[in-house]
Simulated assay, not measured.
Amino acid sequence: MGKHRAYKFRLYPNKEQEMLINKTIGSSRFVFNYFLSLWKEEYKKTGKGLTYNKCATMIPALKKSNEYSWLKEVDSIALQSSVKNLEDSFNRFFKKQNKAPRFKSKKNPNQSYTTKNVSNSIQIQGNRIKLPKLKMAKFANSRDINGSILRATISRKASGKYFVSLLVEEHIQELDKSNNSVGIDLGIKDFAILDDGTVYNNNRYTTKMAKQLAREQRKLSRRYEQAKKDGKKLEDAKNYQKQKIKVARLHEKVANQREDFLNKVSTIIVKNHDVICIEDLNTKGMLRNHNLAKSISDVSWSMFVDKLQYKADWYGKQIVKIDRWYPSSQICSSCGVNSGKKTLDIRNWTCECGVEHDRDINASKNIKNEGLRQIQSYDKIG
């Protein structure tokens, strides 16, 4: 059975295609909001919501009406996908996996729509990609795709750039076993510390760009105030719009740098280890600490763990998550004695057994030991 893998490429639509993409994004957003409203009304009346099938069968009638006849101009599968996303959102809400779906806003900086590959409606030919309604569009074909394309998501970023993300089903060859295991302690001062002493530095991408971002955002604020003073709508204020794109591209640059770093580190760790032990961190809870929130957001622990997880699934490796309350920093990895809680400013300490510890390396060793212990206990139960 194949595994799912996503590929993201820069898309270079011409003016006509750009207009159609924007129309499809707007139409998909409208359909989502339209049926969300109906869904909520139905829930108030009957205590039950609608279903995807009920909503999808109503779309043709919308297209035939004079009021919404413009829906005919865009990809019909994109509209159906929008309704499917709505149903999935409600299903996750009822399972208490996320909050209730909210109406989508056209002011959201990132906009997208999704379409499926039906009868080879999505194909790659050199540096061009065939997409429903758009026909052949130019894109940056930087990687070969070895598998069948299931669906495509076309997105427009705040920077004004367009991208296409392809979900592909393909056979991914599992990596050879390395017979190595690793414990990882995630931190703010250093991004990741392995039990063998390897340290991946925290590059602090947002912090490095902070001055430039602050300067450009101040310019944006001034142009906003000027537009208000001139009585212009923001959409018509050219200087404001230019500066808005400039700020968005700086944010995009930071995000790209961070993702590239996380991809490289996660790939190295997965390739070189069969068992990866890591703490199950409560990132949302930690973000409530206003002193650390900015630093925690910058290191992107959650994104890193997600990358480790899906790459481990691809390549036949194992992720073991340690309970967030496990006192990895307090236990001596040599003798196993818990010497009590230590404040964050204590980076080195000596156990009563005489072994001197670096706080982070010791924590990663304990995380590894606890992970391997859990695996052994599972095997015994099995």
Rank of each mutant, 00 (worst) to 15 (best):
F94R: 10
T115Y: 04
I122H: 01
T115H: 02
K104F: 06
Y68K: 07
L71W: 03
L86C: 14
V83W: 01
F94I: 13
S76L: 02
K107R: 13
Y68F: 14
M58S: 09
K72H: 12
S105R: 08
P109Q: 04
K116C: 14
G49V: 06
K104S: 01
P60S: 04
K99R: 15
D88W: 10
S81D: 09
F103G: 02
T115V: 08
V74G: 04
K99I: 12
S76F: 03
K54A: 13
A61M: 11
Q111K: 10
S69D: 11
L86K: 09
N91T: 13
E67S: 08
N108V: 07
T114G: 05
G49R: 05
Y113Q: 03
V118T: 14
L50A: 09
P60L: 00
K99G: 14
I77W: 07
K116V: 09
F103I: 01
N120S: 13
S82G: 06
A56T: 03
K106S: 12
T57N: 15
I77M: 11
F103S: 10
K54D: 06
V74P: 00
Y113S: 05
I59T: 09
M58E: 12
N108R: 09
I124C: 11
Y52V: 05
N120M: 06
T57M: 13
L50K: 10
V118M: 05
L86G: 09
S65E: 09
Q123H: 10
V83Q: 02
S65D: 08
I122E: 00
N91E: 14
N91K: 14
S81Q: 15
G49K: 01
N85L: 01
V118F: 05
D88F: 08
S119F: 10
Y68I: 05
L62N: 08
K99N: 15
Y68T: 13
N85I: 03
W70A: 03
K104M: 05
I124K: 04
E87D: 13
Q125R: 14
I77N: 11
S81W: 00
K95V: 07
L79K: 00
S112F: 14
L79S: 00
S89R: 06
K84Q: 11
S119W: 04
N66E: 15
A100P: 14
N53F: 15
A100I: 15
K96C: 12
Y113H: 11
Q111G: 11
A78P: 00
I122T: 02
G126F: 06
L71R: 03
W70E: 05
F90L: 06
S89M: 08
C55L: 11
M58W: 14
N53T: 14
E87H: 02
E73W: 02
T51A: 03
A61W: 04
S121V: 06
Q97L: 15
